[in-house]
Amino acid sequence: MKSCEGARKAIVLFFGCLGALTISAPARGASAALSVAPERVEIGTFYRGCRVAVSAVIPAGGEAVVEVVGRANAQNLLRKGRRGGLWMNVGETEVTGAPSLYLAMSTSPELLSGSALNSVWGYGALAHEVRFTGKLSDQEHAGLLKEFIKLKESEKLFGVFPGALTLSPATDGSCVVEGAFALPSTVKPDTYKVSLCVVRDGTIVDRRDAELIVAMVGFPAVLSNLAWNHGIIYGTVAVLIAIFTGFVMGYVFKKGAGGH
């Protein structure tokens, strides 16, 4: 009897789980719909940065945060300081764990500035990831993060924009989140992660990810390949072009001078 009861429970549990999976599968499919447009950005000869739009449908009453994050890579930086009354480079530091690109936007400004969750996103979250190595005290470490963010913001590679996402009601009672971020001209070719977190009552209830591909194409790609893989040829060609142009200009002006 006991074994029969056990078998019945197992069957119920199995079908229960199957049912739950079947129900949640469409829900996941819907939540995967974080739209990024364009999905692929091409850096060509006339690229000067572009706007990338993001949109998603979220349940009514929810708030959202969108992050665009680049791969973390180590970078060597020079620290400036005062020596003998003069400002100059006073040492080096290696920064690790810092993304190459970090942009964050939210529907409610508090999500990126005032809430308890601000250590989940924004510069508060970066503070947990970024590490500086070198001869540094704890106080210098905190100061360096602030300066590092300033450096990256000056290149438009870092930015936090509270309240930059808009929420509008959709026909089915849910909400549409929309926003756009400026991809700077200094962005490196790579695959970037775009994430959307849905927040309700101070808790993350859903997370959706998408990819943004940035690729170098055309003449810049040819030049870049030549420079990185055939340095001697690239350098020689650069010098020959310069000498040729110099002579041509000289010759043209010689002719011009003769005419007068």
Partner: peptide, 29 residues
């Protein structure tokens, strides 16, 4: 310097140099 920089540091931007040199060669004359 140009050849050495192109070989070792990959920091010569030919496109940038060509635009600058078009201006500078004219200016030099």
């Amino acid at each position: 310097v140009t050849v050495l920089q192109a070989m070792t540091n990959r920091t010569v931007d030919m496109e940038l140099a060509i635009i600058l040199l078009l201006g500078s060669t004219l200016g030099a004359q």
